[in-house]
Computed example of a mutant assay.
Amino acid sequence: MYTHLEDFIYKLLTSIGIKRPKDLDMHTIANKLGLEISYDEEKIFYCDNEINLKRSTKMQEWFDFVHELCHYLRHCGSQINMHPLFRQLQEYQADYFTYHFCIPTFMLDNLFNYTIYDIMILFNVDYEFAFKRLEMYKNKLLLTKGII
């Protein structure tokens, strides 16, 4: 059984034809969602249908894109005058979304006998990110089986 977030990500990705790890490409996703990606050396943000990124490594740009995509899809309004605790909550939600979007549960469910290194290569993430996401995934499996 998927959580609300996992279900949201599954429905979103499959509705735009993203079904395998190799389909996870920010330009393809942005195009299918009607978003534009632009670059600025100062700030990372989204405004209307544009996500602005800093030029960096492909992996970092992917993380930043997904983080901002969460704000675009799941949050409204500007954080400029927002109470700091609410802004902190939105940032936490966007980080959590990033783990689940970059390595979707429905894609993990289709893998067998994989290592952290397999996940790193398959999903183009670093070791720390893959480790943390697999811990989330394994803990959820244990929780649903009533082990923890």
Score class of each variant (00 low, 15 high):
33 L>V: 10
66 V>H: 02
20 R>I: 01
42 E>R: 13
115 T>L: 10
145 K>F: 11
56 S>G: 07
130 A>T: 13
51 I>R: 08
49 N>V: 08
62 W>V: 03
16 I>L: 10
62 W>E: 09
104 P>C: 08
99 Y>E: 11
64 D>P: 02
2 Y>W: 03
129 F>R: 04
18 I>D: 05
28 T>Q: 11
31 N>P: 01
137 Y>G: 06
144 T>C: 00
51 I>A: 06
76 C>Y: 11
38 S>E: 06
120 M>A: 08
147 I>A: 01
91 E>C: 04
60 Q>T: 13
69 L>K: 01
9 I>H: 04
75 H>R: 13
33 L>C: 06
121 I>V: 13
40 D>T: 07
30 A>F: 07
10 Y>G: 02
130 A>L: 11
61 E>N: 10
30 A>L: 02
113 N>H: 12
37 I>L: 05
57 T>W: 06
71 H>S: 15
22 K>N: 09
121 I>Q: 12
66 V>N: 00
94 A>V: 07
62 W>G: 03
32 K>N: 14
34 G>I: 08
94 A>Q: 02
63 F>G: 00
4 H>C: 14
116 I>Q: 12
87 R>W: 04
30 A>R: 03
91 E>P: 03
53 L>R: 03
62 W>P: 01
66 V>C: 04
15 S>V: 10
111 L>E: 08
21 P>S: 11
11 K>G: 04
85 L>M: 09
69 L>S: 02
32 K>W: 04
114 Y>D: 02
41 E>Y: 10
99 Y>C: 07
135 E>Q: 07
87 R>M: 04
68 E>H: 01
40 D>G: 01
71 H>M: 14
69 L>H: 03
36 E>L: 04
97 F>R: 00
51 I>Q: 07
2 Y>S: 06
50 E>A: 02
69 L>F: 02
73 L>Q: 09
15 S>L: 09
25 D>N: 15
